[in-house]
Simulated assay, not measured.
Amino acid sequence: MTPQPTRAFTGRHIATIMVGFFGVVITVNVMMARMANSTFGGVVVENSYVASQHYNRWLDEAAAEEALGWTAEMARRADGHVALELKGPAATPQAVFAVARHPLGQLPERVLHFDPAAPESFVSAEELPAGRWRLRLEVRSDGKLWRSEGDVR
Score class of each variant (00 low, 15 high):
Gly11Asp: 11
Arg12Gln: 13
Arg12Asp: 15
Arg12Gly: 12
Arg12Thr: 12
His13Thr: 05
Ile14Asp: 04
Ile14Tyr: 03
Ile14Trp: 09
Ile14Arg: 11
Ile14Gln: 10
Ile14Thr: 11
Ala15Leu: 05
Ala15Tyr: 04
Thr16Ile: 13
Ile17Glu: 03
Ile17Thr: 02
Met18Arg: 02
Met18Val: 14
Val19Glu: 08
Val19Gln: 05
Gly20Arg: 03
Gly20Asn: 05
Gly20Cys: 02
Gly20Pro: 02
Gly20Val: 01
Gly20Ile: 01
Phe21Asp: 00
Phe22Glu: 01
Phe22Val: 04
Phe22Tyr: 15
Gly23Arg: 00
Gly23His: 03
Val24Arg: 02
Val24Lys: 01
Val25Glu: 07
Val25Gly: 01
Val25Ile: 13
Ile26Ala: 14
Thr27Phe: 15
Thr27Trp: 10
Thr27Val: 11
Val28Ser: 15
Val28Asp: 06
Val28His: 08
Val28Pro: 02
Val28Leu: 14
Asn29Phe: 04
Asn29Cys: 09
Val30Pro: 05
Met31Arg: 00
Met31Glu: 00
Ala33Asn: 10
Ala33Val: 11
Arg34Pro: 00
Arg34Ser: 14
Arg34Trp: 12
Met35Leu: 10
Met35Lys: 15
Met35Arg: 13
Ala36Gln: 10
Asn37Glu: 12
Ser38Gln: 10
Ser38Trp: 09
Ser38Lys: 07
Ser38His: 07
Ser38Asp: 10
Thr39Gly: 12
Phe40Val: 09
Gly41Leu: 06
Gly42Glu: 00
Val43Arg: 15
Val43Ile: 09
Val44Pro: 06
Val45Gln: 07
Val45Asn: 11
Val45Thr: 09
Glu46Arg: 12
Glu46Leu: 06
Glu46Thr: 09
Glu46Val: 06
Glu46Gly: 08
Asn47Phe: 05
Ser48Phe: 07
Ser48Gly: 06
Tyr49Ser: 03
Tyr49Ala: 11
Tyr49Val: 11
Tyr49Cys: 01
Val50Ser: 11
Val50Pro: 02
Ala51Leu: 01
Ala51His: 09
Ser52Thr: 05
Ser52Asp: 15
Ser52Trp: 03
Ser52Leu: 12
Gln53Ala: 08
Gln53Trp: 06
Gln53Met: 11
Gln53Gly: 10
His54Ser: 07
His54Ala: 12
Tyr55Ser: 10
Asn56Phe: 10
Asn56Glu: 09
Asn56Pro: 00
Asn56Trp: 07
Arg57Cys: 00
Trp58Asn: 13
Trp58Asp: 12
Leu59Glu: 08
Leu59His: 03
Leu59Gly: 06
Asp60Tyr: 07
Asp60Glu: 13
Asp60Val: 06
Asp60His: 07
Asp60Phe: 04
Glu61Ala: 07
Ala62Ile: 08
Ala62Asp: 13
Ala62Tyr: 04
Ala63Cys: 00
Ala63Glu: 14
Ala63Leu: 10
Ala64Tyr: 02
Glu65Lys: 00
Glu65Arg: 04
Glu65Leu: 00
Glu66Lys: 12
Glu66Met: 04
Glu66Ser: 11
Glu66Ile: 06
Ala67Leu: 09
Ala67His: 05
Ala67Lys: 13
Ala67Val: 03
Leu68Cys: 04
Leu68Pro: 01
Leu68Asn: 01
Leu68His: 02
Leu68Gln: 03
Gly69Trp: 03
Gly69Val: 06
Trp70Tyr: 03
Trp70Ile: 02
Thr71Glu: 07
Thr71Ala: 13
Ala72Leu: 00
Ala72Arg: 00
